[in-house]
């Protein structure tokens, strides 16, 4: 009995020593995460304390789950939670497939020049700052002078005041997000596609496969690991959203769909110095995200063989 327990221990150490180079390669990362991520982690306590800046994080007194109780029992919180969820899920559903499709299409283009130009144009919007993006959205969607409404009117319709309709907010947010990021997001898929062995295509063509079939049977499977990982990571951001963009797009009329957790936390935190409360909401947010990530990861592992760990 003793020997059995002793053996694994010794061979564990031996395995580690034998593979010391792997651990050496990992060391810089370990130092980084320990110092910059886990070091400040004690700050999570703010969510469980009555944070007093004079006493510091450690000196402030404990408040237990008081803040959690406060916002969970508030009438408005669940509405905001729902908004956040709906916005993210909608963005993922609509926005996730498009970069993949774009990458697949671009990959098929023979002309290098066309490819380069299209790619450069497609990822250019990613760099424009959010402030300007939102100004442009407001200008284009303006009921009196915006391009979109001018087109609608040219076709005989009535101008629509897009920015004040709560129901339209999610669509505007999602599609402007796609416009801004689809090119950039497709880059990672394009990189994966370049790793495909060209002999596979030759073999498929000799078997008489059409282009579409090649894509379906060769390209997509090779993208699968990246797609799955990206999906899992997106799921982990399900209670996130582009905080700055939403904040700038918000106006009084659409708060019932446009108020999300991050903007709410910002209003309470910076606006009303409620550090502990906003920290508690942040912790809650993270917990949910993390649980979702674990769930989705487990599902993906069961279904395929790719997972995060």
């Amino acid at each position: 009995m003793d020997q059995q327990n002793a053996k694994p221990k010794r061979s564990l150490l031996r395995i580690v020593l034998r593979n010391y180079q792997v651990y050496l390669l990992l060391l810089p990362c370990i130092i980084y995460f320990a110092l910059f991520c886990y070091g400040p982690m004690y700050g999570l306590q703010i969510a469980f304390k009555n944070y007093n800046t004079g006493l510091g994080i450690l000196g402030s007194e404990w408040a237990g789950l008081k803040w959690f109780q406060q916002f969970l029992s508030s009438g408005v919180f669940w509405g905001i939670f729902k908004n956040t969820l709906v916005l993210s899920v909608y963005t993922i559903i609509v926005g996730f497939p498009l970069p993949i499709i774009l990458a697949l299409m671009l990959n098929e283009v023979r002309s290098l020049r066309f490819k380069k130009i299209t790619q450069t144009i497609s990822y250019a919007p990613h760099f424009i700052s959010t402030v300007v993006i939102v100004s442009m959205i407001t200008l284009f969607l303006s009921p009196s002078s915006g391009v979109i409404n001018k087109i609608i009117e040219a076709f005989g319709g009535d101008a629509v005041y897009f920015m004040i309709k709560p129901k339209l907010f999610q669509h505007i947010y999602a599609f402007s997000g796609i416009w801004q990021h689809v090119g950039w997001s497709s880059i990672i898929y394009l990189a994966a596609l370049t790793g495909i062995d060209p002999t596979l295509y030759e073999a498929a063509q000799m078997d008489g496969a059409s282009r579409m079939r090649c894509i379906w049977h060769i390209n997509l499977p090779s993208l699968r690991p990246v797609i799955v990982i990206s999906l899992i990571l997106s799921a982990g951001g399900v209670l996130g959203g582009d905080f700055e963009k939403i904040l700038l797009m918000q106006n009084a009329s659409i708060m019932e769909t446009a108020d999300v957790i991050s903007t709410y936390v910002y209003r309470l935190g910076i606006g009303m110095s409620q550090f502990s409360l906003s920290s508690a909401i942040g912790v809650f947010n993270s917990v949910i995200n993390f649980i979702v990530l674990l769930l989705v990861n487990k599902i993906c592992r069961k279904v395929g063989d790719t997972s995060l760990w």
Binding site: F71, L268, G271
Partner: peptide
């Protein structure tokens, strides 16, 4: 929290 909820709702 009440103040924020009240003011957001009333503005809307």
């Amino acid at each position: 929290m009440i103040a924020d909820a009240v003011n957001t709702y009333y503005a809307q």
